[in-house]
Amino acid sequence: MEHVSMVFDRDGKSVPVLDDINLDVSEEEFICLVGPSGCGKSTLLNLMGGFLSPTSGSITIDGEAVHGPDPRRILVFQERGVFPWLTVAGNIGFGLSKLSRAEREERITHYVQLVRLQGFEQTYPSDLSGGMKQRLQVARALAVNPDILYLDEPFGALDSVTRLIMRGELLRIWQAERRTIIFVTHDIDEAVQLADRVVVLSSRPAKIENILTIDIPHPRNISSRRYLELRDDLLSKIGLAYTV
């Protein structure tokens, strides 16, 4: 991603949202984007996903410029992203209509197992919990075998206990099927627990303020000294107080 800027036109006034963002992401890397709310994290994700075009600059993936959405990179939404008219199996199979029936069934079975939704294949999303719906969304995304997964505050609508469990689940899934993951969050702990690198954005217009490498191997001990150091470091970089 080189020199990406984005200016929105709102009520005749131009509102700069992103200002000269440069970021290089390696394959199979887990990147967390953090920053104050409304700073343009989601805009950046939408640019990378091809849902928006940058005002200036360019986004290239494996040397190929991003023009429009593509099943090789799937965006996972915060909530209500699963299709309520399809069963769990139907949702996972949504992007697989080009495959033969047998191949599709096989993929569905595989991803149902990966996200631990066995026994719920014929269940509709209205009968699933919030955490199960998000796992289903991740499974639907992974089923089309994308290179990159963009997650836009995927656990933002979950309660804190479920969130903690979901982080573990996501790491487990990521370790089973390595993909490049770009994960937008406003939760510091989430970023330090999950990411290889944390990208800190400033408030609007967003610039990259800092990039923090989290050098603790998984599974991470969230009360180890190194973890707390990195967490404090990140908090101070965002400019938050240590005490509440």
């Binding site: 849902f51 099943p71 799937i74 939404f77 209500r80």
Partner: peptide, 13 residues
């Protein structure tokens, strides 16, 4: 129809 559904549809090609 929520925009999110259309976008998911486009995303899956």
């Amino acid at each position: 129809v929520p925009a999110i559904f259309r976008r998911a549809g486009r995303n899956f090609g």
